[in-house]
Amino acid sequence: MKLKKIFLITVAVLSVFYTIGCWDMVDIDKRFFVGNIGVDRAEDGEQMLVTFTFPIVRKIAGGQGGGQGGGGGSTIVVISTVTDSIHAAARQAAMRLSRRLFFEHTRVILIGEELARDGIEEVVNFLERNTEINRRGRVIVVRGKAKDALTIKNEIEVLLALYIANIFENRDICARFIETDVDEFMKQVHSMNGNVLLPRLTPGKTDVKIGGAAVIKKYKLVGWLEENETLGANFVLGEISGADIMIDIPGYKYPVVFTVTHNKAAMELLEAGDYPKFRVKLEVKGEIVETPEQIQLAPEMLKIIEKMLEDRINHMVLASIRKLQEEYQVDLLGFGEYLSKYKPDVWEEYKKDWENIFPDAEINVETKVKIRGIGASK
């Protein structure tokens, strides 16, 4: 009798836990898996135009058409709504759809240029409070409208979200855009008081290009870094595992192409004073992968090429630093962070007015290039 009573109590307790664990479960066949979210400023200049895209899984699985078109109709649904928040947009979309929107597989969050210039706080708030959102997704600023990027007729991938997200996998051979995900974006935007670099996307008719960076200052887009300037910024951030640099050798028709395989960056405070003086030291290693046919890569020529590469990298890095200092007046390369970590006493003197001090800081760059390989030889 006692054992029976214990058994009944155990069953009752377990049933409560199982009920609690499944109370909000939604069957997979009652969900639409959102791949992309696009956020633009609406035509009224006040509200947002929020765009969701999601695949029709049964059409993709059944082979009805490739890409976004085909004999079986479109495999990707694009739905937009004008609203005051992204959360409200998902609720409004539910009144037009037969299934719920599900965000755990969202790969890309696109922010239109006009909205980004007004401020990205609503996007930050949505990403911070939405527990479903994929933390490995990408946050990207679009040059133009986010919706334009989500309505291209791409023929490369069946899923547009996969196409855009996979471009970031090429960063090991091209470091001319910023690499970040939702988690990293949220950490940076909060720790730096709304200042952050984000990747830039430019839509075309049948494809998109990711290159350059969006400069976000106090949660607002204030401008862009172009591709070479973004490469320069990545050298300082120490986030280059592959990038090609071309230099022209006098007397030769075609350039020498150098591929970076290793990059190490270190900052150093040289003087404190009214305005700090920094030195950025870069150690760059790589290989020559293409040369003019007639050139002879003797040791003397390699030394000349190394010096030319050092000058070219210095120029790109300084162009990036100067633009952030003089045009945008925002520290996005970690100089203030370096002081707070390694020179806390100095940082105490600067931190309250760092926004006004940073533009006048003196920053020098020293680069040392080492060519480790010249490819196959005859």
Rank of each mutant, 00 (worst) to 15 (best):
L127G: 10
G63A: 09
L231K: 05
L339V: 00
V50D: 10
G73C: 04
G112Q: 03
M308D: 11
D248N: 13
M48A: 08
I120H: 00
D118T: 05
I20K: 08
A42Y: 07
A214D: 09
V108R: 05
I178M: 11
Y342W: 07
L201T: 04
K303H: 14
K147C: 09
N134G: 05
V142K: 04
M48C: 08
E300Q: 14
V11D: 07
T75L: 09
R31L: 15
L115E: 10
G112I: 08
G119I: 05
T51N: 03
V369P: 01
K323E: 12
A116Q: 01
A272V: 01
C22G: 13
K2M: 11
D207F: 12
D172H: 14
S80Q: 06
D207N: 12
A146G: 15
N234Q: 11
V289W: 02
A361I: 02
R322F: 08
V215R: 03
M95P: 02
W224Y: 15
L201Q: 14
K220A: 09
E310C: 02
N228C: 04
L231P: 01
Y254T: 15
A272W: 02
I167G: 06
R176N: 05
N36D: 15
L297A: 07
S340N: 05
D360H: 07
D172A: 11
S340E: 15
T180G: 07
A298H: 13
Y18H: 11
L221A: 06
G238V: 06
A361P: 03
M1A: 13
V139Y: 06
P203F: 10
I152F: 01
E157L: 08
V82M: 07
L318K: 12
P299C: 12
K4C: 14
N125L: 12
P199W: 07
T106N: 15
A233E: 08
I6G: 09
R279G: 00
Q294K: 15
T259Y: 07
R322A: 04
G232T: 04
E362S: 02
G211E: 13
Y18N: 11
G65D: 02
K285D: 09
V77C: 05
A149P: 07
E290W: 04
I304H: 00
M316G: 01
Y163C: 00
E155L: 10
V208P: 05
V365F: 10
M308L: 11
G223Q: 00
E227K: 14
A90P: 03
I216F: 01
M95I: 10
E43Y: 03
V346P: 00
R107I: 06
G70K: 05
V50R: 01
L8I: 12
I363M: 04
F235Y: 13
I28C: 13
S241N: 14
V284A: 04
G66H: 09
E355F: 00
D27K: 15
C22S: 13
G373K: 09
I178Q: 05
C22K: 11
L8S: 12
F168Q: 13
M186R: 10
E348D: 15
F358C: 02
W354M: 01
M186G: 08
F7S: 11
T291K: 14
S320E: 06
V317G: 02
